[in-house]
């Protein structure tokens, strides 16, 4: 599992959803949680924060810059090729999942989700990036 001191970025245009994801992360023990309201703000935050983020949890469907566009931007920067990136979405059609995987998503969470589901997805994501 991720170190609970990992800096986490939660990206969603809906304030209540950011609060919900933040609440679940706190329940799991994470302490350092930062929020962004769309992909553009998220990219500005990720690319300028030091020490860097160790985990991104992003919504897909957002105005300005979608979660997918944000993911592509992250992966196009050599500093963030291995940054664990979870996509959270209410629309889980096969084509969409394939698109996210091709863009380099680490794991995928379908809404609605429980704390247990998010924990499982995080564990799988951690194994993937740590080669475990």
């Amino acid at each position: 599992m991720f170190d609970l001191n990992t800096k986490v970025l939660v990206v969603d245009d809906m304030l209540t959803m950011r609060k919900l994801v933040g609440k679940v992360l706190k329940e799991l023990g994470f302490k350092d949680i930062i929020e962004a309201k769309d992909g553009a703000e998220a990219w500005a935050t990720v690319s300028s924060t030091n020490p860097p983020f160790g985990l991104v949890i992003s919504d897909w469907n957002m105005p300005n810059c979608t979660g997918l566009d944000f993911l592509k931007r992250v992966r196009s920067d050599s500093r963030f090729i291995k940054l664990p990136f979870l996509m959270v979405t209410a629309e889980a059609e096969k084509g969409q999942i394939i698109e996210a995987v091709q863009a380099g998503v680490t794991n995928y969470v379908i809404k609605p989700f429980t704390a247990e589901i998010l924990k499982e997805k995080l564990e799988v994501a951690h194994k993937k990036v740590s080669g475990g």
């Binding site: 809906m14 209410a90 629309e91 889980a92």
Partner: peptide
Amino acid sequence: HELQDGAAELLNIIFGHAKVVLN
């Protein structure tokens, strides 16, 4: 005001579920 987008989020999730099944 801060709390109101929860209604949109709930509908978004319901819509997302229905959309996958119907499509």
